[in-house]
Structures are given as structure tokens and as C-alpha cells.
Design a protein around this nucleic acid. Structure first.
Length: 368
DNA sequence: AGTCCGTTTTAGTCCTTACG
DNA sequence: CGTAAGGACTAAAACGGACT
């Protein structure tokens, strides 16, 4: 079978449709602007961009090819007939662009889709390859007991049919339940067999493929030191250049407090956490004796905090009393919340301080 | 094998700004 | 002055290693 090329042909277009179903999205904003997004490897996205000659590439926070409004049909008309998961959305968008509808509503894709309905279609194979090229994850691992190295390729999807088709088409791996989804897994020999079959068709996972082939070569010749090096390279290549956002896990109790406080101050949760870090840094003695409010509770709630270099430094200092950055920040939040309560009581007694001024000050920069 | 949780990566939305 | 590019922000999903 011939390989895939960036061409508007009946092999490539179903592939792109599969890719879009896996790693694409339609977004309609408040001004009714429509955006069609593709996420993935920059080089791959740039190839797409130059093939269709519309849209633009953005690099932060993760690389994406964005096509807006009137440009969308130039891409969508090519692949619409092959789209399966986002079919309804695609039709909606096409209609809306034609009729210049006032309000566009995008519905979630169906919970369940019978992909075997398409089993007769010759293009389904390329659709699945595209889906795989978009959504699969590759990593080099070392078995903790036997110290054997292996390549692991996984793909998580809510559509069981799709996962089963992948498993049946390539005749490798196994399927596991993953929360309310399904996880296709191929490890060791299975994953090597899989990439051998898919090698000519992978356009987005070129880097991963290159790594995997190198890995196979080193494994065959027993060069384990080289494999170690490769594992490191793979990890660092995956790392984002500028990681300015950190995600903090909170228990429900603390999350609710942070949410309501930041709402009443009309600042973002991120900003509130920043304030807490600055505050704790300025009050180290009290910080040291403050407990993490979440303790052993499950930490299922997430808050995003934007980190600049100053904040980074302060977090480092705070977490030097603590095992983890996260628990240090949770303690900082606990302290800040407690002291805000006390401050509030004081202010009610002190008429010299205008609470509105205090709020303004907080919005500007807060008590560092 | 399965769970937990700190951390990283990906996805989705909003907002400012540049530009015609 | 409206539009869209692109960055900023938020949220969700997933990873990975520890532990059992």
C-alpha cells in the first residue's frame, strides 16, 4: 500500500477527517465567530496550512492550526463527507456559514457511534489511521522488576467500536476499561509490530516514530545505554518550552473557599492563589505553623495558577518547608484565607479604612 | 492489578491588539 | 470600526511513579 502524502486525494482526506475527529474542534465565541482548530505537531500543522492555504498557526499554549469563519469551508468541504464523530457539528457549521445565522449552537458529539456501519467503506482504514496519528500516545518505559525496556503505545477513546476496530485491523495489543472510556494498549513486540504496519502513514507522529525506530535498533543490538539516552530525549522533547501555568489540586472544601473569595474580590482564582503565595512569603513565621487545610482528603478540584519567575522563586522558598510545591501552596491558601477573615472583622470595627479602597488595592497588586 | 495524587499535556474560551 | 490573529487564561484529561 502506498504511503500518505499531503494531497487532496481520497486517501489523505479521510485521514484528515479522522485526525480532526481525534484532535480537532469547532468553537463559536460570544461574537458568533467560528473557529476550526487542529492540534498537533507544529511541522505537521504547517504542512496542512500550506496545503489548504488558509488559517494560521499559533504556538501557545500548545500548537494549533486555526481556521476562522469564511475560510472554514475551504477545509471542511474537502473532508466533511468523511467526518464521523463531529458530523452533526460540521453540518451545523456549514449551514450557519451559508445562511449567516444569528445564533449558532454546537452540540456535543453522540455518546455512542456504531463505527461498524462504515466497515464497508474503503476509506475507513485511513480515517482510523488519522485518528490514531492524532490521539495515540507513545512512551519508552522500563519494567520496574525485570529492567526490560519497552515501547508503549496507547489510545484512549470513549468510542468502544473505534478501539475495537483499531485492535482488529492491526491485530495487536489489548483493550482496557479506562474510567468511562476505553484504552487501547500495545506494548513490547506488539507496539513494534504496530509501528511497522503504520510507518508509511504517520504524518503527525514523525518524531515519535523516529524515536521508536531508533529504540528498536538499539534493542536489537543490545545498546542499553543508548536506550537510556533516548528515553531522556523523548521526555525533554515532550516538555513545553515555557511552562507558565501550574495546576493545583484542591479538596472540595478549600476549592469552594477559594472560589467564593476570589469571586467576592472580583479577581481570578489564579490571581487569588498568587496573592496567597506573596502573602505567605511575607509572613513566613505564620506560614510555617499553618496546616494544609486539605490534609488527607481527596484532591479532585483543580485551580490553574500562572507563574512568573518571582512567584516561582517564592514558591521554591515556601516549599522548602514542605515536601511538595502543591501542599506548600495549599498551606499558603489556608493561611491567606484565615487572615482575610481576621482582617475583615478588624475592618468592621475600624471606620478609617474604606473597604472599597481595600478592594481596589487588592485588585491592583494586593498586600505583598 | 488497581488506586492515589503531584505534575504535565492538551483542549476550550476569552480578550487585547493590530490591521485593513 | 469591524475583524481576525494570536496570546492569556482556565479547565479538563492524562501521565507517571509510588504504593499496596
Amino acid at each position: 500500500m502506498p504511503g500518505l502524502e499531503f494531497k487532496k486525494d481520497p486517501v489523505f482526506l479521510p485521514y484528515i477527517a479522522g485526525y480532526f475527529d481525534a484532535r480537532g474542534s469547532f468553537i463559536v465565541d460570544k461574537q458568533n465567530n467560528i473557529t476550526m482548530n487542529f492540534y498537533g505537531n507544529v511541522d505537521f500543522l504547517e504542512e496542512l496550512n500550506s496545503l489548504f492555504k488558509v488559517g494560521s498557526i499559533t504556538l501557545t499554549p500548545s500548537s494549533a492550526w486555526k481556521i476562522m469563519n469564511r475560510d472554514i469551508p475551504k477545509v471542511l468541504d474537502n473532508i466533511n463527507q468523511y467526518i464521523i464523530i463531529k458530523k452533526d457539528q460540521a453540518m451545523e457549521i456549514i449551514e450557519a456559514l451559508k445562511n449567516k445565522d444569528q445564533y449558532i449552537s454546537i452540540n456535543e458529539p453522540p455518546e455512542d457511534i456504531d463505527f461498524f456501519d462504515y466497515a464497508e467503506e474503503e476509506w475507513l482504514y485511513f480515517y482510523i489511521v488519522g485518528y490514531f496519528d492524532g490521539l495515540s500516545r507513545w512512551s519508552l518505559k522500563k519494567h520496574p522488576k525485570s529492567n526490560e525496556y519497552y515501547l508503549q503505545i496507547s489510545l484512549i477513546s470513549r468510542y468502544s467500536d473505534l478501539v475495537i476496530l483499531l485492535y482488529e485491523l492491526f491485530n495487536v495489543g489489548y483493550i482496557l476499561p479506562y474510567n468511562d472510556k476505553f484504552k487501547f494498549m500495545a506494548v513490547s513486540q506488539d507496539s513494534l509490530d504496530l509501528i511497522k504496519k503504520l510507518e508509511p502513514f504517520l504524518l503527525n507522529k514523525k518524531l515519535e516514530l523516529e524515536m521508536a525506530l531508533k529504540f528498536k535498533k538499539f534493542l536489537d543490538s543490545g545498546k542499553y545505554k543508548e536506550i537510556e539516552k533516548l528515553t531522556g530525549e523523548l521526555k525533554s522533547s515532550k516538555k513545553q518550552d515555557s511552562n507558565t501555568t501550574m495546576i493545583l489540586n484542591l479538596c472540595e472544601k478549600l476549592f469552594k473557599k477559594v472560589t467564593s473569595k476570589s469571586k467576592s474580590f472580583e479577581i481570578s482564582k489564579s490571581r487569588f492563589c498568587q496573592e496567597a503565595i506573596h502573602y505567605s512569603y511575607a509572613n513566613l513565621d505564620s506560614f510555617k505553623i499553618t496546616e494544609d487545610l486539605c490534609g488527607e482528603e481527596k484532591k479532585n478540584f483543580q485551580v490553574a495558577i500562572n507563574i512568573d519567575e518571582y512567584l516561582e522563586e517564592k514558591i521554591k522558598v515556601l516549599s522548602s518547608f514542605d515536601e511538595y510545591k502543591s501542599s506548600a501552596i495549599r498551606r499558603a491558601l489556608t493561611l491567606y484565607l484565615k487572615d482575610l477573615e481576621i482582617e475583615k472583622e478588624d475592618n468592621e470595627l475600624n471606620e478609617d479604612i474604606d473597604p472599597l479602597d481595600l478592594l481596589e488595592e487588592l485588585k491592583k497588586g494586593g498586600p505583598y
